[in-house]
Amino acid sequence: MVLRTALVVAALAAITFAARAEDRSVLLNCKAMVERASKNTGTATEAELTRCRQVIREWALRDARTTVDEQGRPLK
């Protein structure tokens, strides 16, 4: 019973950590990586590029839904 509870807690923790949003520095790093990869082939693996493209897409969707900036001021 204790083992099963521990497994459930571990699974929920893993899901929670995977679902948390990246900060804007991750977005900036991914944009830079994709830019470098478009100029030079072989600078990043396909898995890294796929993940970065996903991060960029998620940020674009998040920014489209946002009505305030990072300081909480309304967007113009």
Rank of each mutant, 00 (worst) to 15 (best):
Q54D: 14
T50C: 04
G72S: 06
A18K: 09
R36Q: 13
L12F: 11
T45H: 03
M1H: 13
G72R: 02
N40E: 09
V2I: 11
A19E: 06
P74T: 00
E58F: 08
E46K: 14
I56W: 04
C30Y: 01
V34H: 01
I56P: 04
S25A: 15
V68K: 08
A21N: 11
R65Y: 06
P74I: 01
V9W: 05
L7Y: 08
E46W: 01
N29M: 09
A21R: 15
A6M: 10
T5S: 14
A21S: 14
W59M: 01
V55T: 15
E48M: 10
L28H: 07
R24N: 10
A37F: 00
R62S: 02
D69S: 13
S38P: 04
V8L: 14
T67R: 11
R53G: 11
V8N: 14
V8G: 04
V2F: 11
V34S: 07
A32H: 02
A10M: 11
L3Q: 13
V26C: 02
V9E: 08
E70P: 04
V9Y: 06
S38I: 03
T66Q: 15
V9T: 13
L27A: 00
A60G: 07
E35L: 09
A44E: 05
A32K: 09
A32R: 08
T16I: 10
M1D: 14
M1W: 11
R36G: 06
L75N: 03
E35M: 09
L61K: 11
L3A: 13
G72W: 06
L49F: 00
R36F: 06
R4I: 09
L27H: 05
R53T: 01
Q71I: 04
C30F: 05
G42T: 01
K76N: 06
R73K: 14
T66H: 06
A60N: 12
T50Y: 09
M33H: 04
E58H: 10
K76T: 07
A32M: 01
V68P: 02
A37N: 03
T50D: 11
D69R: 08
T67E: 12
A44K: 06
T45F: 01
E35W: 08
L49N: 00
T43L: 09
A44P: 02
D63C: 07
I15M: 13
M1C: 13
R51F: 05
A37W: 00
A64S: 12
C52R: 03
R57C: 05
R20L: 11
D63G: 05
L7T: 01
E58W: 03
N40R: 11
K39R: 12
E70S: 15
R57N: 07
V2L: 14
Q54G: 12
V34I: 15
E35A: 11
Q54F: 03
R53A: 01
D23H: 09
N40A: 09
A18H: 12
A47C: 00
E58R: 14
T5A: 12
A60I: 10
A10V: 06
V9P: 01
T67W: 07
T43P: 00
T43K: 08
V68A: 04
E46L: 10
L7C: 04
C30V: 07
E70A: 15
D63I: 09
A11Q: 12
Q71N: 14
D63L: 13
A18L: 09
R53D: 07
A19C: 10
T50H: 06
A60K: 10
E58C: 02
L12G: 11
Q54T: 12
S25D: 15
N29K: 12
A14L: 12
L49I: 08
R51W: 00
L3I: 09
